[in-house]
Write a protein that binds this DNA or RNA. Sequence first.
DNA 1: TTGTACGCGTTATCAA
DNA 2: TTGATAACGCGTACAA
Lengths: 355, 355
Amino acid sequence: MTKRITLKQIADEIGVSMMTVSRALNNHPKVDKVTRMKILNAAERLGYFPNYVARSLVTARTRTIGVVVPEITHSFFPDAIKGIEEVAYSAGYQIMLTHCAEDTGREVAAIETLASKRVDGILASVAEQDTDFEIYHRVMKWGLRVVFFDRCVFKIGASCVSVDDEECAYIVTRHLIEHRYKKIAHLSGPPSVSISERRLKGFLRALNENKLKASNDWIIEAGFHEEGGYNSMLKLLELPMKNRPRAVVAVNDPAAFGAMEAIYEKGFRIPEDIAIVGFSDDIRAPLMPSPLTTIHQPAYDVGKKAAQKLIRHIENKTEITENITVKTQLIVRNSCGCKSKNQKFIRQLTDQKRE
Amino acid sequence: MTKRITLKQIADEIGVSMMTVSRALNNHPKVDKVTRMKILNAAERLGYFPNYVARSLVTARTRTIGVVVPEITHSFFPDAIKGIEEVAYSAGYQIMLTHCAEDTGREVAAIETLASKRVDGILASVAEQDTDFEIYHRVMKWGLRVVFFDRCVFKIGASCVSVDDEECAYIVTRHLIEHRYKKIAHLSGPPSVSISERRLKGFLRALNENKLKASNDWIIEAGFHEEGGYNSMLKLLELPMKNRPRAVVAVNDPAAFGAMEAIYEKGFRIPEDIAIVGFSDDIRAPLMPSPLTTIHQPAYDVGKKAAQKLIRHIENKTEITENITVKTQLIVRNSCGCKSKNQKFIRQLTDQKRE
DNA sequence: TTGTACGCGTTATCAA
DNA sequence: TTGATAACGCGTACAA
């Protein structure tokens, strides 16, 4: 087990000072060509690798970005993380990834640890039940930059990157209304999360604008996952026939999948008996027995834009705080009642390049 | 923007030395109860957070694990990363995630950066075309522990965690043979990756044991993704009727999906005209028009076991190097020709808990 | 162009 | 039980 080489050892080897070595290795202009070559050669030969921990202590920069997500595997996040990693890599940053499993305490602990590890900034998507955002205030006071993505916290002076949830929910709901559905239910997300609230709002707006009544029986909390969608849909299906909704707007695709499972299980057809639309364009959406009509959320792009904004915040202290909205797209398939043309069912083959 | 509090400031506040503060904050036993309380209070009041960068410089430990994957979003990896994160979190480590987009150069650069950032160990799954593993030797010489998972590099003295690829490929192939298929093709992975080679071997063994001829025309490189599976399958379908395979063993599920797309596109049925099996039990496998028979690979578990092994290597220098095999399961659905019983199509609802 | 002195915030060591 | 001092490896600021 070889010990690692330090600047000093290279300096001794060549017979110059550590500073000259440091400068040569960092491409400082004012180093003699010959000595620079000697230093570079020695560094190569000895197998020198800089110690970024030591450098960070001096510069108070780590070139590391902390990323906090509620669930690594949850549909949208792998793509978003990839977008983040891609931007970070290009800008010379690494990412430290933490997931909090939808647990607030763990989220707070993660932020604290990231702060202690002196990341230069944090990209966060908050957990479901979060209500207290004091930790974010605290780290921001230290100059740690925070950018929220997808599940945002507004009004605490951090930039946010997300889709226009309210508008999108409005659009899918309106699409259902155009199919002449009158009795439309909503499987909502956890009320404390910004996107749940905004999607609900968009849903209600579409109903109002079309003079449709929004029944409380038809707005039912399902959460963000399959299980919740399944259970909530079951409740909806237990409603007496004449009071049963004919269409459903799910807060996201996983909830819609769960609901579809319930619908089929009870012997109903989609969309003939019950139409349903989702939100996020999960990789599974085109593969459902009745392909799911949904809003395509460019997760990769959200991650990318969030990372870009954060890095600008880090590198330019006067960068303005703002809410960035990324473009979405209504993806019409069959579950809404439309007849979609034949299309490839594997997404990677149909997608245009996203980069 | 408040400056961050240091040990020294707490020390000055209380009128003790930095060392006493350090000891109190680190739960050292030999600190007077009263002074400890005073220190804890002051730390709380001033909002002290330790600087782990400084600590790491002196302890030569970062409690950070580097993770290198070829593709963050590629089926198996999000789950594996989640398993890694879970174990790391429990053991008090953070993970630094890098993806190399299947690019060797980027993989090498990632390892170097992680080494420079002084991670305590590295969890790696290698890129497709990798042939030179010198970088791993180099960092291991410095005492950096490496554990490979899924796509392993054997014989360089690092532990590996993976499934028994050869045996699994043997099992799915045999399953096809039990359906009395004689003409079986293989969509293989990139030849340089260990798992491709081992799966091919298992495929061939099953053929040999059953005295089936393995035609070179029927072993065709598809790579690990949908696109490759699609293109390779197209070639297979262009073969003259009597020379066309009746069944296909794909190197993994994405390749199988691509192949299925091609099969349907050409107007064939699955499994009536052509049967196909995959490998990995991708989240989409049960949702295919003909649900895909495949090998369930417990990605979460692979990540977990790999992280556990790595942490043991880090914390116990005498930990033995070994190859760990995790259990898999043949998931029989329809694409192989079996009639599967009705089952829920959303995986999260059917899965038993994996933890 | 090169070198010296110092400091970054913490822990290890040894002495008190 | 506490404290002084010296690291850890590097970059900044200034001097030569």
